[in-house]
């Protein structure tokens, strides 16, 4: 069938990598859409890196890395919530501090052990070509869970993205659904890190969803575009990595980010001014409103 399909048919590891990438793409598209809409990029980034000490500690203790990742994510979310609630600091500051602490802790744990060198690279950049059938199953379960939760909580999530106060007034407590949304993001990161690594999972979370936000005027459509772009990036990235002998997960993420910038330049060529002008007008009106 030629160089575009053969690598996947001839090699079991390539087929498993493709499936893993597709499952990760679906989960990341759904969770990433809300990360983009709610402006949670900073928290998503911190979560992705914050799981590192959890994974390192788990491996050190001989436990599955995914378990440690889950613990790390929960600690991260809880820590951010605690710091933002107790102080008047912005959540960005709290997130930044916790992110650095978790990363440092991860490195400290790693440096305490000699048997880590290979593992650390795998944790940071993923091992998509080494995906096992068990990992595939887990990813499939997680992807389905993410979709089901997002479908059930679609209305509160939409209200939350629109205006958290409107969610509260409509009978959907914003704090509760915000926590649920963070858990969704954490779940996605925890299951995706084995494929694309803790450093690169953030790219899969952000790039396809951000591209969707550029072209779609509906949230459902935005998610669909994100899934399609995630899937395309997986396929193209794996092919490129196969034929040119490049790192697989990094190739996938690079393709996803490249698509974002291509779409961005196309959309800004097509409609150069209107969105800009509208933004300025809004900012001006808001400022006027505040001073009145």
């Amino acid at each position: 069938m030629g160089p575009l399909i053969d690598p996947f048919l001839d090699n079991g590891f390539m087929l498993r990598a493709l499936l893993a990438g597709l499952l990760v793409s679906v989960a990341c598209a759904v969770a990433g859409t809300f990360v983009v809409l709610r402006g949670l990029a900073c928290l998503g980034d911190a979560l992705a890196h914050g799981v590192l000490p959890g994974i390192a500690a788990a491996i050190l203790l001989g436990l599955p890395g995914i378990l440690g990742a889950a613990v790390g994510a929960v600690v991260m979310i809880g820590g951010v919530a605690l710091v933002t609630r107790r102080t008047r600091l912005s959540s960005d500051t709290a997130i930044g501090l916790l992110f650095v602490a978790m990363l440092a802790l991860g490195v400290v744990i790693v440096s305490a052990s000699d048997a880590f060198k290979g593992d650390l690279v795998a944790i940071l950049f993923g091992e998509i070509l080494g995906t096992t059938p068990e990992q595939l199953l887990l990813m499939a379960v997680a992807a389905v869970a993410v979709i089901v939760v997002a479908a059930i909580a679609a209305r509160p999530f939409l209200l939350l993205s629109f205006d958290p106060e409107q969610a509260d007034v409509s009978g959907f407590p914003s704090r509760r659904y915000h926590a649920l949304m963070l858990l969704l993001v954490a779940l996605t990161i925890v299951v995706a890190f084995e494929a694309v690594g803790t450093l690169l999972v953030f790219g899969m979370l952000l790039a396809p969803a951000a591209t969707g936000a550029l072209v779609a005027h509906r949230i459902g459509l935005m998610m669909a575009v994100a899934v399609a772009i995630g899937a395309l990036s997986t396929y193209v990235g794996l092919l490129v990595s196969y034929w040119f002998d490049l790192a697989a997960s990094a190739s996938i993420v690079l393709v996803a980010v490249a698509i974002f910038f291509v779409v961005l330049s196309v959309t800004s060529l097509r409609e150069p001014r209107p969105t800009r002008a509208a933004e300025h007008e809004t900012v001006g009106a808001e400022a006027a409103g505040r001073h009145r």
Binding site: L37, G39, E165, Q166, R218, I219
Partner: peptide
């Protein structure tokens, strides 16, 4: 309830 300012309304694809 109609709020005075609308948090996410400017960026939301809706």
């Amino acid at each position: 309830y109609v709020a005075q300012s609308h948090a996410g309304a400017h960026v939301l694809p809706i």
